[in-house]
Simulated scan of single mutants.
Amino acid sequence: MGPLSATRYYSRELSRRLAHYARVRRHGYPDHGSLEQAAETILAERAAGGIESGGHFHGVWPRDLCFAARGLVTAGYQETVATTGDWLVSQLSNVFYTDFHTDASVNAATPAEGVDTFPALVLLLAEADRLEYHAESIATLAALHDRKFVDSNRGLVTGAGSSWWDSAAAPREAYNTALLLAAARVLESREIPTVFTGRSAALREGLGRLWNGSYFDERRGSSVLACDANVPVLYFGLVEPSVAETIVNSLGVLETPNGLRLRGASFSPREVHPFFLLHRDYHTQIWPWNSFAYAVGLRRYGFDARARREVERVERCLAPVGTFLELYRVTGKPYVKRGYAAVGDFMVAAALWRELQSL
């Protein structure tokens, strides 16, 4: 990103965030009366609008849609997920944007490419039964993703790019590798040939390099307990039951009466992009979509009581607001601080909640 495009990006991003912050401070969040009604309304509106993430996050984010796909399909929107997946494939070329707009000139709400865009696309297409239809394009995109982001010698996705936390300056190696492993397993199971065919074992071994005996480190050189390094492996079922149990026990350290905190410590100023310096603490707050993905993973591995407890904690905090928030404070109140307000009507949280209702 050159100086001019970076200036345009940050100007647009600042305007977008401040406008949303002002609306929330003045009008609050939309109250749908109940979480059931909120989920129904949010998913219907997002499906009608091409499954945008919601709030001030305009455009379609493959990352969000990847985790929302099961819930959307369960709610009856498989055709919409398929159509959106088809459109995303048509938009991809040599740049893996983090989000996509009908006006391609404003693609990407973050300055870096989306290192998880390709695996997220694979996973959402699989949920919509459109993966085989795009087999040729997927093979081409797989080769490009491999060249851009993957260290084949280590079996790790080490390339820089935006992912689970687009504010982080360093690559999210555990999360990025886990998501690629999930996608590679799907591609292999569907017998769709790509450069990742036969490489699931190597990716699993690479992810194992980040295992510290209790949980997966977020990246080499950092042992901070972080949900993005561990919740996806539970959600996608990437580890053996004994490993899952160890991860769940470790994540218990992050549990609060109002839900699971996202990270064991705030990022240091050097660990975030400058634009996020005032909000480094929001990584230590509670993100409902992370909690719901965690609950799905808990259910997958048989921790039903813990899953119910996590969901009940989050529902208790969301119910008074009447919508699905992007995040809220450990106190249970919406995160509204210094020019940034958590998004309301957040699609991925509503979709994951809907998925949980079907289990």
Rank of each mutant, 00 (worst) to 15 (best):
Y97D: 12
V122H: 00
R147K: 13
L131T: 12
W61N: 01
L141R: 04
L92I: 15
Y97E: 07
D99R: 05
N94M: 03
L144G: 02
V115C: 09
T102E: 15
L125R: 06
G114V: 11
G76Q: 06
F57T: 04
G76P: 05
P62E: 07
A135Q: 14
G71D: 09
A128Q: 02
A82V: 01
E136A: 06
W61G: 07
D86I: 06
V122G: 00
L65Y: 00
P62R: 01
Y133F: 12
V122P: 00
V122N: 00
G85Q: 11
L144K: 08
D103S: 12
A112E: 06
K148L: 15
Q91K: 13
F57R: 10
V157K: 08
L72H: 02
T110Q: 07
Y77P: 05
L156M: 06
A135P: 02
Y77N: 08
A143L: 02
L65P: 00
A120H: 07
D99C: 12
A139V: 08
V95E: 04
R63D: 03
N153V: 10
Y77T: 05
Y77V: 02
A135E: 15
T102Y: 03
V89W: 02
Y97K: 07
V73T: 04
F149S: 00
S105W: 08
T98R: 02
L144A: 10
F100T: 11
V73M: 05
K148N: 12
Y97M: 07
L72N: 00
D64H: 04
A108W: 05
P62I: 03
D129Y: 05
H58Q: 12
L72Y: 06
S105V: 11
P111Q: 11
L72P: 00
E79Q: 15
G85S: 13
Y133K: 10
T98H: 09
G85M: 14
I138G: 11
E136K: 12
E127M: 02
A75K: 14
R154C: 09
H56R: 05
V73L: 00
A68W: 09
V106C: 10
G114W: 08
S152E: 13
T98P: 00
N153Q: 13
S152P: 04
A142G: 06
R147V: 12
A112N: 04
D116G: 13
T80P: 05
P119D: 07
V115A: 15
G85P: 03
D129W: 09
V95C: 06
V81Y: 11
D116A: 09
T110W: 14
K148F: 04
A120E: 07
L124A: 12
L156R: 08
V115L: 07
A128G: 01
T83S: 15
S152R: 15
V115E: 00
V150M: 01
F96E: 04
R154W: 08
I138R: 04
S152A: 15
N153W: 09
V81N: 08
A108Q: 13
P111G: 11
A142T: 01
V115Q: 03
T83P: 00
L141I: 02
L124M: 15
G59Q: 14
D146W: 09
T80G: 01
V150C: 07
A82S: 14
V115I: 15
V115G: 06
V150S: 01
L141K: 01
L124G: 05
F67H: 05
A120D: 11
A126F: 08
R154M: 05
G76M: 13
D116W: 10
D151V: 05
A109F: 07
Q78V: 10
E113K: 00
G114K: 03
S137M: 13
A82H: 08
E136T: 06
H134L: 14
